[in-house]
Design a protein around this nucleic acid. Structure first.
Lengths: 193, 193
DNA sequence: ATGATAAAACTAACGTCATTAGTTTTTGAT
DNA sequence: ATCAAAAACTAATGACGTTAGTTTTATCAT
């Protein structure tokens, strides 16, 4: 029933993650992955359905791991001193993940195939956590949607620009991040909803 | 001195832009471009040094066109009623460009080769205009850097998420954009520098 | 122990792409 | 008319993803 258990899915995924994080997501190729696993490229098809599927698995894993990190950063019921504390912890965790796993982060920055429920659910998880991170602002339903969209935009934009070296010298980017978040949250606080 | 003037550089670039904008930047291939120009792929090398160079030309053209649009949106010396008016006009122009030219926009979202002065200059142009858009807030030198980084982050993030369908239903994304910009600018106004 | 089974490796082959080398065609200036 | 050079072409190579078909080998039932 189980002859020749050579590679388990975790090994394959882990190797792919390492390659994506070091060489960049777009440089992850089946040939490279096979080489790292010391097998021939076609043998990979015993473990993964192809390059698109491998990328999808990376996206899924990335979203799961990010969600896990964010959950740890945003305790479900903790009473935080200021409404901004939760959002700030969330932001730091988000950015930290993207810096630590640039390949994994890049993996889920693409439109999922329509009908991919697992991927959609994983993305929804992150979305829910983002909503939670802004809960203490007690926004209305409509405002909350806009606020979350904005919050995601600014976090992703920061991470994206920083990752491509778009800020020139990497000097004080952490201060820039704090400035950005605090400015946005200050604006949120002033909102007369 | 000038035998066989078949294709001029503008035609090649224009065709590449159309392909990138319709099929996506990453789907732009030399084979596809050659097909559109009804020549064979190797003949393209008479006009462009290769795929990386073609992409670089797209990035350059994209930055130039964006800068032109932004310049039109942000009149150099106009006295605007509120400090936010200028930044808002800038934002709308920026987002409009990205929506109209997704391929061209994607072209300059990558780290330029070190030492590419022309590309760096084009990027600097856009950066200067962004700085100008926030000038009316009269920020200090340090704050201005952070403010511009934040502004770019949020604009790019919004455009990026919207482009990949990251907002779910494309409902009221314009309202979300306005909300985002106004929230950030409100936060900027409250800054005690 | 042994042999059947099925997973997982392999080789061979194909199509697509970028790229290079070398050849032919065309056109404008002489 | 001719000549030079630009711009097209064909042919070929190497990387990649993918499929088909074959061989190996670990495990399970006997």
């Amino acid at each position: 029933m189980s002859p020749r258990i050579g590679l388990d899915p975790q090994q394959v995924l882990q190797a792919a993650i390492e390659l994506a994080d070091t060489h960049g997501f777009e440089s992850l190729t089946l040939a490279l992955l096979a080489q790292k696993l010391t097998i021939r490229t076609p043998s990979l098809y015993n473990h993964v359905a192809g390059l698109p599927e491998l990328r999808r698995l990376l996206a899924l894993e990335g979203l799961e791991r990010l969600a896990k990190d964010l959950r740890a950063a945003v305790p479900p019921e903790a009473a935080t001193p200021a409404p901004t504390a939760c959002a700030l912890a969330f932001s730091r965790s988000y950015v930290h993940f993207a810096r630590q796993h640039p390949g994994l982060y890049a993996a889920f920055q693409r439109a999922p195939e329509p009908g991919d429920e697992a991927l959609a659910a994983a993305a929804q998880q992150v979305l829910d956590l983002t909503l939670l991170a802004l809960a203490e602002f007690h926004l209305g339903e409509e405002s909350a949607i806009h606020a979350v969209r904005g919050f995601r935009s600014l976090l992703h934009g920061f991470v994206s620009l920083e990752g491509q070296g778009g800020f020139g010298l990497p000097l004080r980017t952490d201060q820039s991040l704090t400035f950005l978040i605090e400015t946005y949250l200050r604006g949120l606080s002033q909102l007369i909803s």
